[in-house]
């Protein structure tokens, strides 16, 4: 087990290097720092001096991979690649194009993200399992077919409409909660209810439908027939035999997402004005702040790899048949 985790962590290194090379290529090779300077400065102010100034100010005035002017190790370290990419490995994210410290931004902004994403995640899974269980109880009836159609219909609605609809009904028409905003002190829950509710409702269609399939897949297994032959009632079979078995794929399917909860949700956060990492990313995209985007890509990759490792560990924990090696 320990050796397995260590091996997975080691395997993460080449992946992170790959991620970095890819983003670096995207940001600096496809578009040279000169191009970036032009687009950041705007057409009006483009003079060679202005470009040089901008590059110097933002640390793009070095060669990409190899600095022939420097000596020794500095040949490699005095480069954009080292400055902008290798340092990420030490969690040194540097400054954004607008001069803010990315590391401290991330540290403060991840909590609001988590405050929305975590309840959405937990409540969502609970609701989806309950809904799916109810539907499975009526398997084969008209109610089941109707529910499946409803799930597909719910899935076919864009996330944007869930948010807009939720804001319009709950906040504007019924005036139950504020439309948007987030105050850390006091009644935070007031601002959290609606985003969480929207997130949960938007996820029901796809989630409950998937879980229903998983339950039905288990319901077709031989051991269910054995349980019936023992004289178990249908409810006992559903809760004591099908549910524990179906929880394995459910659990392992969602565990990969847990670390990424820190990243928040782009859409929810921007619509509801929550100062989390999701809206941070969106602002970075809109202001074309590539330093932030690069850092977030790196953080996102680490969290994803962490999720993969957690998934494997959760497998051994949930399924007695699985042993890691």
């Amino acid at each position: 087990m320990f050796a397995y985790i260590v091996r997975r962590l080691l395997y993460a290194i080449p992946i992170l290097i790959g991620v970095n090379l890819l983003t670096f290529t995207l940001f600096f090779v496809v578009n040279s720092p000169d191009d970036m300077a032009v687009s950041q400065l705007g057409d009006k102010y483009v003079t060679p001096e202005a470009i040089e100034n901008w590059k110097q100010k933002n640390g793009y005035d070095k060669p990409l991979f190899l600095n022939p002017d420097a000596a020794g190790a500095a040949r490699l370290t005095e480069t954009i690649f080292f400055d902008k990419s290798v340092r990420l490995f030490a969690f040194d994210f540097g400054r954004s194009e607008s001069g803010r410290d990315i590391t401290s931004d991330v540290a403060t902004r991840m909590w609001p993200s988590l405050a929305v994403a975590l309840p959405t995640f937990i409540v969502g899974i609970g609701v989806n399992i309950c809904v799916a269980l109810m539907v499975v109880m009526f398997h084969g009836t008209r109610l089941d077919r109707g529910a499946v159609f409803l799930f597909v219909a719910l899935m076919s609605i864009s996330y944007l409409f869930y948010i807009i609809g939720g804001q319009f009904l709950v906040a504007k028409t019924w005036r139950l909660v504020p439309i948007s905003g987030f105050h850390a002190e006091g009644q935070v829950w007031k601002f959290l209810i609606l985003p969480v509710l929207v997130g949960v409702v938007a996820g029901i269609g796809a989630g409950a439908r998937w879980y229903r399939t998983l339950f039905l897949e288990e319901a077709n297994q031989d051991y269910v027939r054995t349980a019936r032959a023992k004289g178990c009632s249908e409810l006992t079979i559903l809760f004591r035999h099908i549910l524990p078995n179906a929880l394995i794929p459910i659990l392992t399917g969602v565990v990969v997402l847990i670390p990424s909860l820190f990243m928040g949700s782009l859409l929810i956060e921007s619509f509801f004005g929550i100062p989390g990492l999701g809206s941070y990313m969106l602002d970075a995209i809109n202001s074309q702040d590539f330093a932030i985007v690069r850092s977030m890509v790196f953080i996102g990759s680490i969290l994803y790899i962490l999720g993969l490792i957690l998934t494997d560990i959760s497998y051994t924990w949930a399924d007695p048949r699985v042993r890691l090696s």
Partner: peptide
């Protein structure tokens, strides 16, 4: 694995912006 470890929306956004 490398590609799917990058948050999809960021990768898309960055590529489109570039």
């Amino acid at each position: 694995t490398t590609l799917s470890s990058i948050p999809g929306i960021l990768l898309i956004a960055a590529s489109v912006l570039l």
